[in-house]
Design a protein around this nucleic acid. Sequence first.
DNA 1: TCCCAGGTAGATC
DNA 2: GATCTACATGGG
Length: 274
Amino acid sequence: MDVNGIKDFDIEEVLECGQCFRFEKIGHKKYIIIAFNKELVIEQNSGTITFFDTTEEDFEKIWVPYFDLNRDYGEIKAILSSKDPILKEAVEFAGGIRILSQDPSETLISFIISQNNRIPMIKKVIKNISEKYGSKLNSHYSFPTMTQLQNAALGGLMECKTGFRAKYILDAANKNLDFEGLKKLSTVDLKHKLMEISGVGPKVSDCTMLFSFNRYEVFPTDVWIKRVMQYFYFDNKETSIKDIDEFAKQKFGNLTGFAQQYLFHFARIKKIGV
DNA sequence: TCCCAGGTAGATC
DNA sequence: GATCTACATGGG
């Protein structure tokens, strides 16, 4: 089905900005995305977005929330741009970014894998564990459920190149987390709950909350964000994550999550501070 | 060969 | 509390 009239959306920026890992480019602004046990082929031609082989029901129930299509990003971009010229530049650099609303268990495991790792390698490891422990869809495999991961052996996960993170994946799976219940927690309580998992610290929990729990008030600070924040706001001086976090919350208010993603993408592509 | 990557746990002070 | 280091793996 074709969808028209969606502003502030660029499929390439949405997928390539580092928030998700299960997609393949198959043409110009054309991708296969694996999410929520679906293989979605999606293509964007200027103002028209085509969702191949998609029912009206799947579009409304899965893809509208997934791509955050009901939110007015024009307003978010305007507010952030008015706050300071650096955000204005980052927003103009990739104005088609949207914060996805992904599956919480997949996002949690994915960002456990992301620690001390590179994005191409993260994608490869996630593909490996999906093919080994997930379920066959059409031409791809679903991301394994926590139950499927509970049946994984440490050695099997290591074979997927998870490295030292294998034991963290098993700990997360064996916590038997009730994700529907977690959605009801406050952001502070949710963060503490996620950090009870071995291998989940402030960064992984913030990413999980931003990209799957719709908690837009967090500010995940990784090496790129640390570099770009130091470069633009701290005179390129070494600054603690705590100070960066406080500064971001004070400057960007309740839009820190959006600001973070514009800045992260901008910093990574422009290689700011390296 | 050495250094680093969308960090964190454990040790040490 | 804040700081230091090991950790699997692969690419520059």
